[in-house]
Amino acid sequence: MSSTDLIKVHLKVWRQDGPQAKGFFEDYTLDEVNTHMSFLEMLDVLNERLMKDKKEPIEFDHDCREGICGSCNLVINGVPHGPEMLTAACQLHMRHFKDGETITIEPWRATAFPIIKDLVVDRNAFDRIMSAGGYISVSTGNAPDANAIPISKPDSDSAMDYAVCIGCGACVAACPNSSASLFTGAKVSQLSRLPQGAPERKKRVIAMVDQMEKEGFGDCSNFAECEAVCPVGISITAIANMRTEYVKAVLG
């Protein structure tokens, strides 16, 4: 490994002992960061050093580290998931940072996502939105043959484009209003494109939108920051679809 693959980075990391505690930025410097490391591996290395010094490591959420589970939730230099488009923080690599750069790391910030510790937040509000109506009510064993209802490839592909949401919450973190419209709109859009979703179409959108408001997420004002940071590229058309569905449901 040549020395050009190593960079020095300064970190400003949000530390907060608990939900009620006052948070602050703590500074760290890592002298030799291999640029092939992932961002989370860089944090692992820092935590190892802290523990060797008998200090408390930085808490952050992570699990699959493949960009699919949606656990990681870091705001890096002010941008949810950091500087790379279509990339969750766990798939961001240190090659995208400069030697000597200062990197600020914060948790998602939104009223509906209270901080648990350091960079870890509570996202249970998303489960409650899903529970309000983000499903098709088919009990196990009730299904007809899978090919009984043909679905055109464009409709199916479009449903899939919305279904790939990983539920990370970057859309909320990026939104000046902390709106969850992209998240909710994606599920509404997926299910409204499929014939299976039709029977509950109206009920679903109303229940999910109501729950979203109850949870303390803000309204959408078309900033489109959500679309810009979404690690899986959910289009903001999801929100337009949700609004159309909502209006149709309320008026019809």
């Binding site: 088919v138 007809p144 899978a146 043909p150 679905i151 055109s152 199916s156 449903a159 997926q190 499929l194």
Partner: peptide
């Protein structure tokens, strides 16, 4: 086979042919 039926009924967007079948 029942698994595929169940998942399609739930709205799992499996890959399809242009004719609309899986």
């Amino acid at each position: 086979n029942s698994i595929i039926d169940q998942c399609v009924a739930q709205g799992v967007p499996f890959a399809r042919e242009y004719g609309g079948t899986l």
